[in-house]
Design a protein around this nucleic acid. Structure first.
Lengths: 196, 196
DNA sequence: TCGTTTTCTGAACGCACGTTCAAAATTTAA
DNA sequence: TTAAATTTTGAACGTGCGTTCAGAAAACGA
């Protein structure tokens, strides 16, 4: 934390501690995720967290940044590569669930943090809804989608996706691929222009 | 708490404290809702809560019971009175938002509690999903609805409704009636048997 | 090798929490 | 009016929390 340029140890410890924080938050909940528990998981003294991140808020902030960056990097390219908005929306949903399959604890921890007491990371949630809304505007412009309220639809889509990590923590055998297909079909019907 | 039959003071205090707990939980979040804050809101000493409810868990339990009972009493009769499953589902959604309009803090507090650290009240959430699922089975039996997975659909509908209290706390001018209509339309399209 | 810098330890501190309980205040009943 | 029962007070206690920091250990550079 002292050096201007990050050393190897610095980078490795930060990554390790962030990962341990994700696991503890996902498994015990944000309320039980104390610095002592996280340090214990990492096999390290409590002071190390303060040393590398300043304080607990710094650690949480690093977790949010890391998870959000990883998730966007995985999903965004897939979505924008789709030829139609309908396929874009489908990909948005399925790639979200794919991310959960690859990183079972990451999204759960992120949602715990966003929901936590103060609204410090409310902006992250708002950004996620805006990202969904972009795809919906795309489909309304091309005429693929009907004239629904994009705010309500985007909020609902995010709520549907964000409900999954909790289900997954209760039943880790949940078939995420099947769940993703079901959700994609559901919102495909909900967004399509009504045919008479 | 001593008397076998509830005193007038006993009942009044219990109701007052439960209401204060709802307000504090809804406004400050479950994490910040300490007994000291709740007692302060009621203009009373901390010991009073322990005296009337045994401990904090007893108070929370009373809040859950009271809110759940009030909500079900308001909504269930309306839903089962509908002639079709599609109208039943619509009523399920709109009566939920009506309840939020009448009791802005109640559902928010209930959701905070259900989401809280331990899964003590996870059964309440599971029950709420089951209630939605019953309406979906109804519609699939009558042939009004398509062949979607009722578990996923019910989870999504509840997630969509449960997302609203948070929106409402961020923008208390939110038009709940319009939001309800939009949601009802969304899930009407999502549940309808596809026409070719 | 040896001095410097980086990293880590673990005890100490103040704070907020839920619970308890003796004593005081209030209400109830005769 | 008076004695018993109910209700309230508020301080005390133990626990777990995040933060701090002097000193020890390890890594680094010459």
């Amino acid at each position: 934390m002292r050096s201007e340029n990050e050393t190897f140890i610095e980078a490795a410890r930060r990554a390790q501690l962030a990962e341990c924080a994700v696991d503890v938050i996902a498994e015990a909940g944000i309320g039980k995720a104390s610095m002592a528990r996280i340090a214990e998981r990492a096999g390290v003294s409590v002071g190390v967290i303060s040393y590398h991140f300043g304080n607990k808020a710094g650690l949480i902030s690093a977790v949010v940044e890391q998870v959000a960056k990883t998730a966007v990097a995985l999903m965004e390219p897939q979505i924008v590569a789709q030829p139609t908005a309908a396929q874009g929306l489908r990909t948005l949903i399925t790639s979200n669930l794919d991310f959960m399959k690859q990183h079972p604890n990451a999204l759960r921890a992120l949602l715990e943090i966003i929901r936590a007491d103060d609204g410090v990371y409310a902006a992250q949630g708002a950004q996620a809804i805006s990202d969904v809304e972009k795809v919906l505007h795309w489909g309304q412009h091309t005429g693929e989608f009907g004239a629904f309220d994009t705010r309500v639809m985007a909020t609902t889509i995010r709520a549907a996706i964000d409900a999954v990590p909790l289900l997954l923590s209760r039943d880790e055998d949940l078939d995420l691929t099947a769940y993703g297909e079901e959700l994609a079909g559901l919102f495909d019907r909900a967004t399509r222009k009504e045919s008479h």
